[in-house]
Design a protein around this nucleic acid. Sequence first.
DNA 1: CTTCCTGCAAAAGTTTTGCATTAAC
DNA 2: GTTAATGCAAAACTTTTGCAGGAAG
Lengths: 144, 144
Amino acid sequence: MSELHQIAATRLGAIRQRYTDGRRSLVDRLSAAGAPVTIPELLSLGDEPMAQSSAYRNLAVLEQAGVVHRITASGDFARFELAEDLTEHHHHLICSSCGAVEDFTAPAALERTLTKAVDDIAAARGFDARQHRLDLIGVCGNCT
Amino acid sequence: MSELHQIAATRLGAIRQRYTDGRRSLVDRLSAAGAPVTIPELLSLGDEPMAQSSAYRNLAVLEQAGVVHRITASGDFARFELAEDLTEHHHHLICSSCGAVEDFTAPAALERTLTKAVDDIAAARGFDARQHRLDLIGVCGNCT
DNA sequence: CTTCCTGCAAAAGTTTTGCATTAAC
DNA sequence: GTTAATGCAAAACTTTTGCAGGAAG
């Protein structure tokens, strides 16, 4: 059992949820995708078929457990990816033309600056910042 | 006629669209709101009633014209605000508990660092970056 | 054996579209 | 006078929910 699945199982257990085949399969599919994917993509991705309702329900559970993160890049469908602490902290290149989303990582120095600045601002506003989100919107290589 | 409306009229004209009362009213409502608002909020905000379908259609036109920006903060409804160059470049504090969105501006030094770093990264990936988006997700003062 | 996850189908809720009328150019 | 925007209602589409059957603890 890979470390990824162990962590997932632990986090589900923490909120008294089971790590079933369907949920494991979702984690596998997300891990294989390596980038945020939509539900239709998730359904077509795997080897075994999966009910759409189960995907929605289980992704909600996995999100509550902190295993999966839901992002809403402008587009028809919401997109899902593994939680940041299961991959590595990263950001998104969002193509405003085709809706594709790519990951990128920022230099550590930038991240440090960002985190500090952002925490200061939030604190001054009585806001308890849990995470930041830095996305680039533009046009990807395929669409130019 | 305020400068805001002049700019809106010009940009609509550039894509051969009219600046009608309904569209002017949307710009007014967005300007009055001062923060990203949902369509139901927009409809209830104004003095005169407005058809939901007109709101959706006109916001789409205004977005194409570059007058309005659509953000999809996780929540049921999409939110709309005036384009950044009609207000001032800013970011969002998004409450993951109640879905409220607040604006904030970052220190100029941080913005410079951010813009440069972000352009470099995008360029290296063959991505034509048009704008960046920096949001803080956390819990607002009302929800703690 | 009890609890809860799964899959199917139907409902709910947000956004889009057709069509006749009205307003803008 | 021609072209396009408005409002109403209905359709489309994403996401959620009820329910019966089956798997997990």
